[in-house]
Design a protein around this nucleic acid. Structure first.
Length: 290
DNA sequence: CTTACGGCCTGGGTGC
DNA sequence: TGCACCCAGGCCGTAA
């Protein structure tokens, strides 16, 4: 569910309440999304919470514990929510982790589909997970972005979704950035012109920055750490708008599947040559036959 | 190394 | 009402 802007919003909310708190206890429900539930249960109580950071779509809660500097890493997957509550408040369905804090409050993790992930990462162990992430899309320079694109023949949308390429882009903001840049989602990364790459770099930053300002997009159930919805869904230009008129030219927005995900685009503003489409198909078929 | 694809879960919506 | 089917802010493992 949450992409970079939603995770950033949640992290900012948690930063206001978590640092300095101590974890008193951990209560677990279903644990199939936790790397090592026993470690979580045994290591966390007694830890004092330090900084709360975002790395791509991961939330890193730094812990202060003797010499080691472990972290609690949390990924919200599609339906994960992290919020503080008073112990008496009703516990929402699918709440699988409850951390009791020393100020009498609780930090609760709720995740209907359990596509999220949670781990107690001792020290650099978290490097295994975080180290593979690509650059932050808000920090990468145009030169580096352009150079990375040039080395890949994958479809540009698939690349933007790949967290090893860039950390933080998801299905909504990728489609929004491609629409702004007037680039078809199936274009091959290496075939983008200098100007297209420039537009994409700028669009990505613009879309993400605006979305952070509006505290993310709330489609069905996303809420920030304080239980508030975001406002960027009102600014969506293509995502979820199949059949509706393009905001630029009025052409009906279309939906295709790219990298296994619904992808919305304007067939007039975001063109691709038959050759480039056929190219990727031929590549796939040739490989399948071998 | 790269890319493509099925699978992991649950629930909401739609159409018969 | 019931049921089958499609869809959903994500990523992982496997195969080619």
């Amino acid at each position: 569910m949450p992409e970079l802007p939603e995770v950033e919003t949640i992290v900012r909310g948690l930063r206001a309440v978590l640092p300095g708190r101590r974890v008193l206890s951990v209560r677990l429900g279903k644990t199939d999304f936790i790397d090592d539930p026993a470690a979580l249960e045994h290591e966390l109580p007694g830890c004092r919470i330090g900084a709360v950071e975002r790395l791509g779509k991961f939330i890193a809660v730094r812990l202060e514990k003797q010499e080691t500097r472990p972290s609690l890493l949390i990924h919200l997957g599609m339906t994960g929510q992290l919020a503080t509550a008073r112990p008496g408040e009703p516990i929402p369905p699918h709440t699988h982790v409850i951390f009791a804090l020393d100020d009498g409050r609780e930090l609760r993790y709720t995740d209907t589909r359990r596509f999220g992930r949670m781990l107690f990462a001792a020290d650099s162990a978290g490097r295994d997970v975080l180290g593979k992430l690509g650059d932050d899309p808000l920090e990468i320079t145009f030169a580096a972005f352009r150079a990375s694109l040039a080395r890949r023949r994958a479809m540009v949308k698939a690349l933007l979704l790949d967290q090893h390429f860039l950390r933080g882009m998801g299905n909504i903001y990728t489609d929004e950035a491609l629409w702004r840049a007037r680039i078809h989602p199936k274009r091959h990364a290496a075939r983008l012109t200098l100007d297209e790459a420039r537009r994409l770099h700028a669009s990505m930053r613009k879309v993400l920055a605006d979305a952070i300002r509006l505290r993310g997009s709330s489609i069905s159930d996303y809420l920030d750490a304080a239980g508030q919805p975001g406002g960027y869904q009102r600014r969506h230009r293509v995502y979820g708008r199949e059949g509706k008129p393009c905001f630029r030219c009025g052409t009906k927005i279309r939906r295709v599947i790219v990298a296994g995900r619904s992808s919305y685009f304007c067939p007039h503003c975001q063109r691709i040559s038959r050759l480039e489409i056929r190219d990727s198909k031929r590549g796939t078929r040739a490989r399948a036959l071998r």
